[in-house]
Nucleic acid binder design. Structure first.
Lengths: 331, 331
DNA sequence: CATCTGCCATACGTTTGCGATATGCGATGG
DNA sequence: CCATCGCATATCGCAAACGTATGGCAGATG
């Protein structure tokens, strides 16, 4: 028994007529008669009673028809599911983000566009620091990670910088420097401040970048606190522990008593935004997500003439409303 | 895409190994490789990643496997359902019975054995008089009918007498003839009684038989009441309206104040038990029921030596416990 | 480091069987 | 009674499925 037999049988059953069914199937009548008889012989049961004008289903034929139709539909569904899965339009993907990365509007846009374009994909998002995400990538617990600066570069994991943005000064509202500064705050003006810095255990990253920037400005910063997450920085600044330098998009965190101020100049320290993934044969779903991250939607391309038709794209500062599913376990 | 592709794919997916799957399928390895590749080409999606040792499912393969297995199971189920339906082991049948026929132990036994042997068949039983059942057979509303004496013989309907039994006298308990009669009651002893008879409008049947028997016994019976159903006979006898003659198996109706007495002699009037059905190409389910009715289980066959091993068959007088489903409408 | 082994892919010949064309047979309808 | 309709049968051609033989690549082995 093959699917062809089922297709032919259903056609004949629906037409009640072998010749018409053959026309509908695009084959001649004799082969169709043969296939029907072969099916009957295979089952050991007559499916049709031959009438003078056409054919009619027997009780066995009725029963077989009821089962054959779902089988054919199931076969088509199997094809569709496989194709969808191959396109990456169906399936699941687990990704990881750092708190500071997910606040960047680019990431929000990527996740929003991905979930819109591939509604059949279940997106699981885990939030952790860069070191944990890198390890999760190695274990294949997650397929893609969005983070700031890489803290390790294990083999088999590729990192690609999507964007970078300047660091901003975070100040308590009562701080003298918190008043508006048209040209931004010179880094050297912070030489007597106490700093709250995000600590990445023996690893490069923004911790080093900030230190180097301060040294370039001519002073060694005094560290008031070292924290594990950049969100904590801002809390401590709000508590008056000190000042800090955070990526510009962290402004989305609008704690009371906190002010964000630009740094003076354009050559100040910057925070990268990085996507990391296993190289090798990427799963289609992950490939789609990476493709979306690789072609930043409506990123201004200076070389091109501005002839592209503007569309009602979301303002870049808005964080997209992607549903975040946080799985319980880490392993 | 054919079922063969699904069978092959599932085997390879389950084995994780083309060569082993080929052995399991009883074919050589190259054709299996070809068929898998043909399936992949047909779907336009790779289903396996070729590993140095065996193969592994891709995401598309995983999705396809989840769908392919139910499809194969569904195909096998379709085969089974068709075969069962052809055997008459599955489906539905509507039959009709008269009240007096269904009380006969033979009918009870037939229905009990049928529902035991073919538990997959939904049995619908309708109760009506012989004329209505005959018409229902013509309309194909029912497939088989069990009744007493045929009242009409339309073309295309075949009647077969299954058995016959003597009529018995039904008397009120206070009637002088109700006391035990070792040799039975002679019909002539009823010459002065008033009779309750089952009327079949302008048709042959037991009504005529009773009249003829009385005339043969030398008297014209005085009719006290004519009723439509034999069950009503007994009610009227219990009410003291008169006496009646009913088939012996009607003794199952044990109304208070009613006594059943045998008729004297062996050549008295008898009530047949008849099965009626459409001839032509009988549906398998109906054919099975007729076959069961045609080979009366454990009917004593006088010509054979009595060497058959007795089994704990039910006493012949017991009416089997078949669930009766009475459909609402007649049409 | 060279060799061997295991496994999948490719090549090619054989055969099965599907489909097309031509025709026969039975029943129906005018 | 003849024409028509519809399924069955016969025969042929060809595509495709299967088998045998062989190549190629990557681990495993000594």
């Amino acid at each position: 028994m093959e699917l062809r037999h089922l297709r032919y049988f259903v056609a004949v059953a629906e037409e009640g007529h072998i010749t018409r069914a053959a026309a509908r199937l695009g084959i001649a009548q004799p082969p169709l008669s043969q296939q029907i008889r072969a099916l009957e012989a295979d089952l050991g049961a007559k499916l049709f009673t031959r009438l003078p004008r056409g054919v009619a289903l027997t009780a066995a034929g009725e029963a077989f028809l009821r089962e054959a139709q779902p089988v054919l539909a199931g076969a088509e569904r199997a094809r569709r599911r496989a194709v969808d899965a191959a396109r990456g339009a169906e399936g699941a993907i687990a990704i990881g983000v750092t708190t500071s990365a997910v606040l960047h509007p680019l990431i929000g846009g990527i996740l929003r566009r991905f979930s819109q374009r591939y509604p059949g994909v279940v997106l699981t998002i885990r939030e952790a620091n860069a070191a944990e995400l890198t390890e999760a990538l190695e274990r294949r617990t997650i397929a893609v990670a969005f983070l700031r600066a890489p803290v390790a570069r294990p083999p088999g994991i590729v990192f690609r910088e999507l964007a970078s943005e300047p660091l901003m000064v975070v100040l308590p509202a009562f701080h003298p420097l918190a008043r508006p500064h048209p040209g931004g705050i010179a880094l050297a003006a912070l030489r007597h401040e106490r700093f709250v810095l995000t600590r990445r255990p023996d690893a490069p990253g923004m911790y080093q970048d900030v230190l180097q920037a301060c040294r370039a400005a001519g002073f060694e910063p005094e560290v008031a606190a070292e924290v594990g997450r950049m969100l904590t920085n801002i809390s401590l600044v709000a508590a008056g522990v000190g000042v800090s330098l955070v990526p510009a998009s962290m402004r989305s965190i609008r704690l009371p008593g906190v002010r964000y101020r630009r740094l003076a100049g354009t050559d100040g320290p910057r925070a990268p935004l990085t996507v990391a993934s296993a190289d090798g044969a990427a799963e289609p779903v992950a490939a789609n997500l990476l493709a979306l991250a690789g072609s930043p939607h409506r990123r201004p391309r200076p070389a091109l003439p501005a002839s592209r038709t503007a569309d009602p794209a979301l303002p870049a500062s808005r964080v997209a409303g992607v549903a975040l599913a946080t799985p319980g376990a880490t392993a």
